[in-house]
Design a protein around this nucleic acid. Structure first.
Lengths: 350, 350
DNA sequence: CTCGCAATCTGTAACGTTTCAGTATAGAAA
DNA sequence: TTTCTATACTGAAACGTTACAGATTGCGAG
């Protein structure tokens, strides 16, 4: 062993974090051997392997991410692409917790890549792909014909979507079954004797709009109910907007006696709007809402809710991207979350 | 110019992203010169600088993060250390949006480093510092004597805290003035003729517990009111817990006729608990609550609220860490957000 | 004319990792 | 003995960047 090497390695060990060179010096092996021993390569002797791994653990060796990334191109990063105009009280925190949970035992880090709804949603995706700043991407607000999905598919870039598409491309996704949700909701209202229903739907460009709408429409037919159109508001609109439009709706000649709300935060606005019109939930009409926090029916026990587990969705999506990166078959990375049954407040006395 | 170099550079340009080598080839300059020209080094001719920068922009050159990171140790990453047990409907999304906003025009990426409240809060911080996986850290749930603050200070690692400390260490922070909030809240209740107040406080280990408590206590004295102790619940407890404890509180012989709530989500539980006891907000008692979303008084217009702008806090914290990294004087990186005045619902008719 | 010096530019090495193309050794086959 | 092969290991090169230590040029001063 050269004098050069020894002094180099000693300097190493004195100061900062251990590197492969440090380990090589301590074990008396070559850097290459150490690198291979740590990743259980077959051409390393069993005893050597154990020895290296032991020393590595002892001195707390952790591979330098920049080194790996530069050499291999692997970033060990998952990017969550987020719309920063998302509703307040939004589900984003839960989503992040879910993803973190799934990433915790892996070498992956989670990085948040924001964009504004006003800008091109493709832009953040293109940025990540072009600069190769992550190994995989998670997106939401999926559209039936989604150009982000097309873009990433064409380039073979791993991703998972929160929501399904309808463009003949198989890809990993996790979705809440909004069709089933709408069906359940309508059935519940029918069972309560309601006849004329309205739907506070998602914006029409998103995939789950169609699922929810179809479920709503099919169940209406099924139960022999009629619809009161309510296209003026979507769950994406501001609280104030939804509230005002709802009041208008309730002041029409033929107002609904049941409403299905497609999102949690918007249900707050919906309730306020209904009450602005002087009507009572549970008396003049009933409401079934999706709920991602558990706060909604604390203050309006008369509401019926269906819980959507966003944290689970996050975990599922993270697993899906990682699966895709690892080369798992796409079909095995698609999952659909069935809604729980419609839930009334426990201490509800109507 | 060697043949070697030319062919190398050509291969470069054909395939992937442009690198400094590509730029060097295109401009006919050396790699070093290009590198320096791009960062406006003084020893580069004005014309050369312009030429390099033009070509770089034209072909969309973006420095390879791994290369920079490996060479310089600079990650261009800010880590947000998050407690994943945080209340649902939490403020985390807004915080992230705020941070993203401030980071948007910079080279910084945001990475989320989670930990569970049950584990050692120092652990994620130590991980980031030891592996140098970020240039700066943002933490919340700050304690008066915070070991994370001590740890990072001792190592000179840049950070900013959401909340202040009290340990004789100057560091960047952003905080909401919870003392002022509590004072305002008590004054409001006093003005409404309330006499016996309770406080739904933060957990006692956190810094803002003390601020809020002191404000509450001082204002009580000031207004000549008395306190009904309510130590059984904190804003960190589960919805169900707060709700049940509140009901107990309201069934006591001497129950409060006014409550100050230190957080948004917990106010929902508080209201539910009060109403479980058969009492009415605005009649039997009044409540003043902090609010980070705008949903709370949609359903209980009788509530009084003070808005806390968490998005702003996020942006402020991001600016603070970046300032610290850039070497700005610490004192200039400390900010306190005064609460807005107590707000009643606009269409409130009592 | 030469020297010194400022102004510009350049090659090499290094950051920590993995991959490629070996080398050394020992035992088996010829 | 020689040759071959499998096993266990190794050095050098490369990923893209920046820092260090020059190199080249032009020009005014001596």
């Amino acid at each position: 062993m050269d004098k050069d090497k020894i002094s180099e390695a000693l300097e190493q060990a004195e100061a900062g974090r251990p590197t492969l060179k440090t380990l090589a010096f301590m074990t008396g092996l070559g850097v290459t051997t150490v690198s291979r021993a740590l990743k259980d390569a077959p051409e390393i002797g069993a005893e050597t392997r154990r020895r290296v791994q032991l020393v590595a653990k002892q001195i707390g060796y952790r591979p330098n991410r920049a080194g790996v990334r530069l050499r291999t191109g692997k970033t060990n990063v998952i990017s969550l692409v987020l719309d920063t105009e998302e509703q307040v009280g939004g589900f984003v925190s839960d989503m992040i917790y879910g993803i973190s949970e799934a990433l915790a035992a892996t070498p992956y880090h989670l990085i948040v890549t924001p964009y504004s709804r006003n800008n091109d949603p493709l832009e953040p995706v293109r940025y990540v792909v072009e600069t190769a700043s992550a190994d995989g991407i998670i997106i939401s607000r999926t559209e039936p014909d989604d150009k982000r999905v097309r873009y990433m598919s064409e380039r073979g870039f791993p991703f998972a979507t929160h929501g399904r598409t309808d463009m003949g491309i198989e890809h990993p996704y996790h979705d809440f079954d909004n069709y089933a949700f709408a069906v359940e909701a309508v059935r519940k209202l029918a069972a309560l004797g309601r006849r004329r229903l309205a739907l506070l739907a998602p914006p029409a460009n998103l995939s789950y709009y169609h699922h929810m709408r179809n479920g709503f429409a099919d169940a209406l037919v099924d139960c022999g109910l009629s619809e009161v159109p309510f296209p003026a508001a979507t769950v994406d609109h501001s609280i104030e907007h939804i509230r005002a439009r709802t009041t208008e709706l309730m002041n029409r000649r033929l107002r609904p006696d049941g409403i299905v709300s497609g999102a949690s935060a918007s249900a707050f606005a919906l309730v306020a709007g209904v009450e602005d019109a002087g009507l009572g939930i549970g008396t003049d009409l009933d409401i079934v809402s999706k709920q991602s926090s558990r706060l909604l029916h604390l203050l309006r026990p008369q509401l019926y809710v269906v819980n959507e587990d966003v944290r689970l969705a996050g975990a599922e999506l993270a697993r899906a991207v990682m699966g895709r990166i690892a080369g798992a078959p796409v079909i095995s990375l698609q999952s659909l979350n069935r809604p729980t049954t419609v839930e009334a407040h426990t201490s509800q006395q109507k």
